[in-house]
Amino acid sequence: MERQLYTILRNEPVAARTWRLELASDDPSFVAGGEFVQVALDGFYLRRPFSICERSKGRIVLIYKVVGEGTAALSGLRPGARLDVLTGLGRGFDPDACSSSALLVGGGVGAPPLLPLCRELVARGKRVSVVLGFNSASEIILESEFRALTPDVTMATVDGSAGLKGFVTDAISAVKPTFDYFYTCGPLVMMRRVCDMLKTGGEVCLEERMGCGAGYCAGCSIQTRQGVRRVCKDGPVFKKEDILW
């Protein structure tokens, strides 16, 4: 964990109530999708956790949805502003858990941490199928970024305004991807249905209200089959079989 001051390079809407934040950063600690940063915002006591969507030389990208006063304030910050950020947080997806072909299932703003994972899997020569679900076409994010990495991308919307109509589970039933391991991030109910439906091993990326974000306040502890685990430090990625839904 390190505390850094990052300059905002861009902060722009990319879909309905969804923003893309690009920070000037040389964060060398980031290794896997699912890892996150804690962002301090003026006027708000606690930091906000956001998963890292992209890291390339000199910058990191976060994608966030405006869901409350804190994220609304974040969306009002302009390029050039400095953000107080804690980095090096969380334990991300394990690309080695997949032997040759992976299925990535993302829902809404759960898609961003799957992008660096997709990049890593492709770089290791693994075949990757992606299924992304959104409420409607207006909320779709990262479609072109995933398509740039793999030809096998299926989009689904609940209202049918883009891609297949229905939930990600409906899309998986329709396209029948082949894979030996899956990774998912999105609403809890979606991840539960995905885990119930898919018979292979897999990993889920959880979300929880956090205090410190670094494993010392017990604010986000959950019970798992492995005992009590901190979402921020032991996760946010957990193996499917360890989750007590």
Partner: peptide
């Protein structure tokens, strides 16, 4: 002890609430 179920953390102006419950 596991303590209380989550959410255990809430925010307030100039402060926060916790209900960890002695984990």
């Amino acid at each position: 002890r596991y303590g209380n179920p989550t959410p255990r953390i809430a925010e307030a102006p100039a402060g926060m609430l916790n209900a960890v419950g002695l984990e």
